[in-house]
Design a protein around this nucleic acid. Sequence first.
DNA 1: GCCTAACAATAGGTGCACAA
DNA 2: TTGTGCACCTATTGTTAGGC
Length: 284
Amino acid sequence: MMLCGVKFRLDYLEIGKLLSNPNLEFKSEFSRQTGEIGQSSICNYNGMTIHIKSSGFGYLKGSLHKFKNEGKHNYDDFTWDEVFLVVDELSDTFGIKIRDLPLINLEWGINVETKIPPKQILSGLVMHHGCRFDKMYVNPGTHYVCSHSQFRVKAYDKGVQNCLAKNLLRIEISANRSKFINKLGVYKIGDLKRPEARLKLQNALLYGGWANTLLIDPGLIGYNPSNQDEIIRISRWSNPNFWINASKQVRSYHKRVYDRFINEAGFNVKQAIFEAMMKKLWSI
DNA sequence: GCCTAACAATAGGTGCACAA
DNA sequence: TTGTGCACCTATTGTTAGGC
């Protein structure tokens, strides 16, 4: 599993230390109209950003994974040992103890290699729980995002994004609220030293995230229905709008029947990804 | 302004009865 | 056999007040 984005809350103490750190250069908002210098100031450093809103409130956010790669990319693997090395390095650079800062947001995910191009898988993503996936166009590529109020489930083609030759699918959970990660036993980055906390993040990704997605199996597109009933069912199941517009009971029923059908017909794209994630999770 | 905690409201999943 | 509606429980979401 890989940690990606983080957002920490900064208090009076840290803000004072950061502002007096000679290695950091802060830029303030400046209004040409009034000539006033805004209260908030920003500092960018290798993919990490410090936002100081007032003397008592600010946050530090960015990608630890990118920071490890000097702010350039995040398509390689990022082990837990590396996470804590990066946190220590960042702590030294900034002169504050990052490990003990309260986490406000956290993003974690995994890259898996797939047999078929990720694009085919992504276009079949319909919903996560009762929430539909939206397409967000980012250059290059497309992010499939499902936004709940406390967290987002994201999937995208990591290979295309970084012009890699292999089929690399990234699946990610991003928690917007500290409540969501607190529930998993994570309050600060140091908590992730504990294997139980890491396991909870993994499970949230596997079971809470991927297992609860509704995926139209790419195999369905080329499937030859054997009778009239199947023609109707397949045409419904392969239509995202059928799922999105169905009442929750209808959806729940069809999901069950669809899962059984997928299983019997041997369409296993979702399951294969689940297993690949599982394997990958235990290897890094 | 930005965020959190607590609470109420709403939505999802499941099992079951039952209709077409 | 396929599909729908209902009740129940639980998880998620929205709202409000309040901290810093």
